[in-house]
Deep mutational scan, measured.
Amino acid sequence: LELTLRVGDKTWHFKDVDEEFVRHLEELLKRGAHEREIEEIIREWLR
């Protein structure tokens, strides 16, 4: 999967994204996660 995600003024483009990561992001967005929380999840995933 490829994913382009825009949060606030930042845009990330990922290739070979894990479906579990996408589901986790979807859940965060559904519950109205704040920009900082989403950025933290992305940084963790990139490690």
Results as ranks from 00 to 15, higher is better:
Phe14Ser: 00
Glu26Ser: 10
Trp12Pro: 00
Arg47Met: 10
Phe14Pro: 00
Leu46Asp: 05
Thr4Ala: 07
Phe21Met: 04
Ala33Ile: 11
Ala33Asn: 06
His34Arg: 10
Glu2Trp: 14
Thr11Asp: 05
Phe14Arg: 00
Glu39Asp: 10
Phe14Thr: 00
Glu44Gln: 10
Lys30Val: 10
Glu26Ala: 13
Trp12Gly: 00
Glu19Met: 13
Arg43Gln: 13
Glu44Cys: 09
Thr11Leu: 12
Arg23Asn: 10
Ile42Tyr: 07
Glu27Gly: 11
His34Phe: 05
Leu28Cys: 04
Glu26Asp: 07
Glu44Asp: 09
Leu46Lys: 05
His24Cys: 04
Leu1Cys: 12
Leu46Pro: 02
Leu3Asp: 01
Glu37Asp: 11
Val17Glu: 14
Leu29His: 04
Glu19Lys: 15
Leu46Trp: 07
Glu37Tyr: 11
Ala33Tyr: 12
Lys30Ile: 09
Glu39Trp: 07
Trp12Arg: 00
Arg6Asp: 06
Lys10Asn: 08
Gly8Phe: 03
Glu37Trp: 06
Glu2Gln: 10
His13Tyr: 15
His13Lys: 08
His34Met: 09
Arg31Tyr: 11
Arg47Tyr: 09
Glu39Phe: 07
Glu44Met: 10
Glu2Arg: 09
Asp18Lys: 06
Thr4Gly: 02
Arg36Gln: 14
Lys15Glu: 05
Leu28His: 07
Lys15Tyr: 09
Arg6Val: 15
Gly32Asp: 04
Glu20Gly: 15
Leu46Ser: 05
Val17Gly: 15
Gly32Pro: 04
Val22Trp: 03
Ala33Trp: 13
Phe14Ala: 00
His34Val: 08
Arg36Ile: 11
Asp18Asn: 09
Arg31Pro: 02
Arg6Ala: 09
Trp45Asp: 01
His13Ser: 05
Gly32His: 06
Leu25Gln: 00
Glu40Gly: 09
Leu46Phe: 13
Glu39Met: 09
Glu35Cys: 06
Asp18Thr: 12
Glu27Phe: 13
Asp9Tyr: 02
Arg6Phe: 03
Gly8Ile: 01
Glu2Tyr: 08
Glu26Thr: 13
Thr4Leu: 11
Asp18Met: 03
Ile38Gly: 01
Arg43Gly: 07
Ala33Lys: 08
Arg36Ser: 14
Arg31Thr: 09
Phe14Asp: 00
Gly8Arg: 02
Lys15Val: 07
Arg36Tyr: 13
Arg23His: 10
Arg31Phe: 09
Val7Cys: 08
Ile41Leu: 10
Leu5Phe: 13
Val22Thr: 03
Lys10Ile: 14
Glu35Lys: 06
Arg47Pro: 04
Asp9Glu: 08
Arg23Trp: 08
Ile42Arg: 00
His34Asp: 14
Leu46Cys: 05
Phe14His: 00
Ile42Leu: 05
His24Val: 11
Glu40Met: 11
Leu1Trp: 15
Lys30Leu: 11
Lys10Gln: 08
Val22Cys: 02
Phe14Tyr: 01
His34Cys: 05
Lys10Trp: 07
Lys30Arg: 14
Thr11Ala: 04
Ile38Asn: 01
Glu40Ile: 09
Glu20Ile: 13
Val7Gln: 01
His34Lys: 14
Leu5Ser: 00
Glu37Ser: 05
Asp9Ser: 07
Leu3Pro: 02
Val22Tyr: 07
Glu27Met: 15
Phe21Cys: 02
Thr11Glu: 08
Asp9Asn: 10
Gly8Thr: 01
Glu26Phe: 15
Val22Arg: 03
Ile41Asp: 03
Arg43Lys: 12
Leu25Gly: 00
Glu27His: 11
Arg47Trp: 10
Glu2His: 14
Ala33Cys: 11
Glu2Val: 07
Lys10Gly: 02
Asp16His: 14
Gly32Ser: 05
Phe21Trp: 07
Trp12Val: 01
Asp9Val: 03
Leu29Pro: 01
Lys30Thr: 11
Gly32Trp: 04
Val22Leu: 03
Leu29Asn: 04
Thr4Asp: 05
Thr4Gln: 09
Asp9Gly: 09
Ile38Ala: 02
Arg43Asp: 07
Glu40Ser: 12
Thr11Trp: 07
Glu20His: 12
Glu27Cys: 07
Arg47Val: 11
Asp16Trp: 15
Lys30Pro: 01
Val22Asp: 01
Arg36Trp: 14
Trp45Leu: 04
Lys15Leu: 06
Trp12Ser: 00
Trp45Arg: 04
Glu20Met: 12
Ile41Lys: 12
Leu1Ile: 10
Thr11Tyr: 07
Glu39Cys: 06
Glu20Val: 14
Arg6Ser: 13
Arg6Glu: 09
Leu3His: 06
Asp18Ser: 14
Thr4Lys: 13
Glu19Asp: 06
Glu19Ser: 14
Glu37Val: 08
Val7Met: 05
Phe21Glu: 02
His13Leu: 06
Leu3Lys: 04
Leu28Pro: 01
Glu27Lys: 12
Arg23Ser: 08
Glu19Asn: 07
Asp9Leu: 04
Arg23Lys: 12
Trp45Tyr: 15
Asp18Ala: 09
Phe14Asn: 00
Arg47Gln: 09
Glu35Asn: 08
Leu3Ile: 15
Leu3Asn: 02
Glu2Thr: 10
Trp45Pro: 00
Arg43Trp: 14
Leu25Glu: 00
Glu20Tyr: 13
